[in-house]
Write a protein that binds this DNA or RNA. Structure first.
Lengths: 272, 272
DNA sequence: ACCTGAACACCGTTCAAGT
DNA sequence: ACCTGAACACCGTTCAAGT
């Protein structure tokens, strides 16, 4: 069969930065990071490269815009709260996993700051699952301009909940940074796992992939990798979402300890 | 003056994979990620591209090897312990920062697992400072093969200390993953900051850069960025190393809570 | 103001040929 | 077994020219 030309002669809508970024995201999603070229883009948009350069400075800016857009959408969807869970109904929500490490207090109000932090994290987690190129591009953008468009958005979303948590002001920056770093690191690693699973064995399902990886771990050198070998079974058993949540709860527990100095007198926070 | 040709006619040593990777690291360090091209490499090594391809499959493998090497060196240096602190004497050590969040217990033995975890994290932290391209390449390699050569090394190093910490076996995987994610995320972000500071204003020092960034935060929209504005002062004041350590301690506190369920009976860990 | 498309400089990679 | 270097396919980007 002929190479399927995706609706080439659609010149109805005028070219715009929006349409270009949208096409870029589609291309990244379907063809991977290597699939986004100006030639592929011009074909898909039925124009010449010059037209694209009229709306976008260069490829870097295009990738940044794609990254920004996808992250903003994820944060906005989650900010809408338990109400507008549009076009994400399939996604399993936090779900109060049975295994989850409890952060001291027992009964929390249904939409506690903790829950909201989990929700935000899940939103990003899901976005990275939908767009496997996102973690890499996030990393690239961060190394280009760390306080560019994306980080402040995430930082602010998480920070507000940290504040609501009652963390002493002197620790806001530390606590929020720690959470954001964990979330970006964990979500990125996870998306990477998924991408690898898809690439290495597109036909094989997740469980089988984990099984293979687990077996590989068990065959590592006993001297050099005693711990990794010991933990191979756990890694086969683990569920990505539970694992991710458990990590968040771990950090949340640490943060909570900042203003609940247990019985013995902890160092009083240096109120700025 | 003429463009300085770095010792071009050195054909004494035979070409080898080692020498190629070494040259690649040097090129990355001095010329940045865009500076590593096969043409620059051939010039530096005084050969043709074919010679390089005899020792290395492609550019991806070359970058992976460079990343592996640098990470392995960092881990090895730290594994050597407080004894062999070779060629890193300038580096400030963990230093028991006064501000550091204490993880419950008061007096810890000089080389507790906590200290070792901090040392490993610092080693990676330092490697990313020396090699600004490392975080990006780490992210890229992770998204190519998450359980390739690098991650297991880091995972094993940290995991051993988690085990030594007395964490119940059922939580080894979770605790170690959380730490590794935080470390990679935080160190990466930090290196990104440094790279940005160097790029945007090579002549300006760190303090001035932080000051500028802080002022920019204070001018954000009060509605959209109330938290970020409130925290702008803290971010100007913050010291990278202290900040990084404080985050580690936060996670460590959360992990410690796993097996020190305080007074009230916490959920007993599901011993596998 | 917006778009066209040929042309340019540069890149990773290959391969027939040498030693 | 190891190296040479011309050649190839492809990429991001430019720019004179059109409407």
């Amino acid at each position: 069969m002929a190479p399927r030309t995706r609706r080439s002669q659609r010149r109805t809508e005028a070219l715009s930065r929006e349409r270009i970024v949208e096409a870029a995201v589609e291309l990244l999603d379907t063809a991977g990071e290597g699939g986004l070229t100006f030639r592929a883009l011009t074909e898909r948009l039925a124009t010449g490269p010059g037209a694209i350069y009229w709306h976008v400075a260069n490829k870097e800016e295009l990738l940044d815009a794609a990254t920004d857009g996808v992250v903003a959408a994820a944060l906005a969807a989650e900010r809408a709260g338990s109400a507008g869970r549009a076009e994400r109904a399939d996604r399993t929500q936090p779900a109060e996993s049975a295994e989850s490490v409890q952060s001291a207090e027992s009964a929390q109000s249904p939409d506690s700051p903790q829950d909201k932090i989990r929700a935000i994290a899940f939103g990003l987690f899901g976005a990275m699952e939908d767009h496997p190129w996102l973690p890499t591009q996030l990393a690239l953008q961060l190394s280009r301009s760390p306080w560019g468009a994306v980080t402040p958005q995430i930082f602010e979303s998480i920070g507000r909940q940290v504040r609501a948590l009652g963390v002493p002001e002197g620790h806001w920056f530390t606590a929020t940074s720690a959470l954001v770093h964990y979330i970006l690191g964990a979500a990125g690693q996870n998306a990477a796992n998924n991408a690898a699973a898809r690439t290495l064995a597109p036909d094989v399902d997740r469980a089988e992939f984990l099984d293979t990886a687990s077996k590989a771990w068990k065959e590592l050198d006993p001297d050099d990798y005693s711990f990794t070998r010991a933990v191979a079974a756990q890694m086969r058993e683990h569920d990505d979402r539970e694992q991710f949540l458990a990590g968040i709860d771990l950090v949340l527990t640490g943060i909570t300890a900042l203003h609940l100095p247990s019985e013995r007198g902890g160092t009083p926070p240096p109120a700025t």
